[in-house]
Design a protein around this nucleic acid. Structure first.
Lengths: 349, 349
DNA sequence: CAGCGCTTCTGAAACGATCTACTAAATCGT
DNA sequence: ACGATTTAGTAGATCGTTTCAGAAGCGCTG
């Protein structure tokens, strides 16, 4: 049971230098066609699978993969509709560029919390072990240590939040939230609950700490507040961004003594959970209570959810281009949003 | 602008051997707590990000990532409902094991076609460059050269098809298709079109070559044939497994002079496309024409699609365990399926 | 006090490629 | 036919770790 041949072994067998074997795979133009043929034939015959990826990327400093950071849950990439579409856009560009796409696990990081060194090491472990040519950070708090690790490694990072020097793809979270808030206000809603996902886990509390909010969430909450003018606004932290969280918050809202006439969520995912639960409770959104979301994911249309549309797939594509297309030099791109009014909002009773 | 420090630089600065710095990160128990503290402090201070991933995996022969092979399109991972759920299960296990998940691009490979060496190199390029501890192959034809490359690299591969020696997670494609065929037969359908995805691209033809079918598709087609007994069966190749392909085939069916009373697709994705198009054409599935799918993806329920349910998430999880859980030694697992009868099938007119 | 087992740490050899700079031979223009 | 350029190929250093065998130090025991 002999071990696998290395590039050197192939070189020896072919009577050429190791450099030539390397060139046969990576730089055909540096080699006569005949020599290349001979080398590749021999390699195939010896069962040589081509240059070893780690050795190759150690020396060349390129790995052919870009990473996407997940600070919550790896499964989020496939479960959350916003994320799925973003990933689709990213994958599209990765494919064009011939790059592989690495889904990186990094631990959840709460800004206000102090971490021991070992906890912090565990937090960034996924990123420490991965060979990357670049990474995308969406929903990763700018203070997350993984960003420092990647910077120390000189791995380019692009994000969806204004961070420390990284390039980014943004939308006008605040402005579009203002517009949405005004819409609710113009419908006469004077008592509103704003629901946001946050890094708090556990039961929805009535007071998410500012430091526990992702930047986009803070901007949306602030925008809604502004747009809602003098209305009585209660901000509720839903925990992680899932429909289940939305449902949990719906129960909380239903139990309120002074029930709001509208509930505005910082994401469609949360809003869809709210809608579901309200409907189950016999409260038809639009008539009994108004609900709004954010993102305009695919299910929002069928559900009749009023929301802010953002071009998610385009966002993914742009992030990908920033990493993979050298001719793409812009350092900050802002994409347009649009208020989509559907049946889940109506005049306050 | 000094370059980044290496492990060795940290070792020199700390007055210890490189081995100790390595151990500080990877084997705390080999080191006194004090020494470890000192080393990690210094590393942090010097802006050392930890062991270089490529160097580390070159030496240790582990990368901390497992790969999923995509022979069609990377975006498939996020677009196709079957695939999304499978990936979710895989991601779940990867997360538990602390592994990253690499989405690998490999070119589409048609068995009957001859490839030049360069075409073949391009076909496997994604897999050649990636450092992997294992890979999952779903919908990759057993003859695809990427499987040979991975074998030559000693990368363990698990698949969803009976292949050459790999471990696999299966369902009884044939048996469940027989059952589905019998269901149609018992409803009196005597003229049936079977629609399958295949590696043929382009217009749906009336004759998919056997070599262009993925194993699961061939088994399902055969099973349907058997279950349909003496019915007149026409097999149609839809090309890639998308709703758009399903719609295209629907048009073809609508144009047939001897229109079938039922259409059976080898996947829900195709079936959902068919349903849509039939409905658009004013043909209510179940009454005008019967339609069946395969997989029982999430949309199948709301669409009223009769189909075969398979535990897709569990499949993903099992594939993940096979790669990541050393105590999981089974080499072949078969999961149970269930015929789900909904409104898209009804007695033949 | 020799001998033993532990813990803690080190030296040097891999791991498998690619890069830079260079040479020898072939081709070119005039 | 002769220097100038291009082409084909090579030598040797280098990328940054981890691993393995073993050394040094230390407290014990008999």
């Amino acid at each position: 049971m002999s071990s696998r041949p290395s590039l050197k072994a192939v070189a020896v067998a072919a009577g050429v230098s190791p450099a030539s074997v390397s060139n046969a795979y990576n730089r055909p133009e540096q080699l006569s066609a005949a020599a290349r043929e001979r080398i590749l034939d021999l390699a195939a015959q010896m069962g040589y699978a081509g240059p070893h990826p780690s050795a190759s990327s150690l020396r060349s400093r390129h790995s052919g993969s870009i990473g996407m950071l997940f600070a919550q849950d790896l499964t989020y990439a496939f479960d959350d509709p916003y994320c799925t579409v973003l990933m689709g856009g990213l994958a599209e560009i990765a494919m064009e560029a011939g790059a592989n796409l690495l889904l990186l696990q990094v631990g959840p990081h709460v800004v206000s919390q102090a971490y021991s060194r070992d906890e912090e090491l565990r937090l960034v472990q996924g990123a420490r072990r991965a060979a990357l040519d670049g990474a995308v950070a969406d929903g990763v708090h700018p203070a997350h240590p993984v960003l420092r690790v990647l910077a120390e490694r000189d791995v380019p990072v692009v994000s969806t939040a204004v961070g420390t020097g990284e390039r980014c793809v943004l939308i006008d979270d605040r402005g579009s939230a203002v517009e949405l808030g005004r819409h609710l206000r113009s419908l006469g809603h004077r008592r509103v609950v704003v629901v946001t996902d946050s890094m708090d886990e556990g039961d929805p509390s009535l007071a998410p700490a500012d430091t526990h909010l992702f930047p986009y969430a803070r901007l949306r909450v602030d925008g809604l507040r502004e747009g809602l003018g003098g209305a009585e606004v209660t901000v509720v932290s839903a925990g992680s961004n899932t429909q289940a969280s939305g449902r949990r918050v719906a129960d909380l809202v239903l139990a309120m003594t002074a029930r709001p006439t509208a509930v505005a969520a910082t994401s469609d995912t949360l809003a869809l959970g709210l809608l579901q639960r309200f409907r189950e409770a016999g409260l038809e959104p639009g008539t009994g209570i108004s609900v709004t979301g954010f993102d305009d994911v695919q299910q929002a249309g069928p559900a009749g959810l009023t929301t802010v549309r953002q071009p998610v797939r385009e966002k993914g594509r742009t992030l990908g281009r920033m990493l993979l297309d050298p001719s793409f030099t812009e350092t900050r791109v802002t994409l347009a949003t649009e208020l989509i009014i559907r049946t889940s909002t109506a005049p306050a009773p």
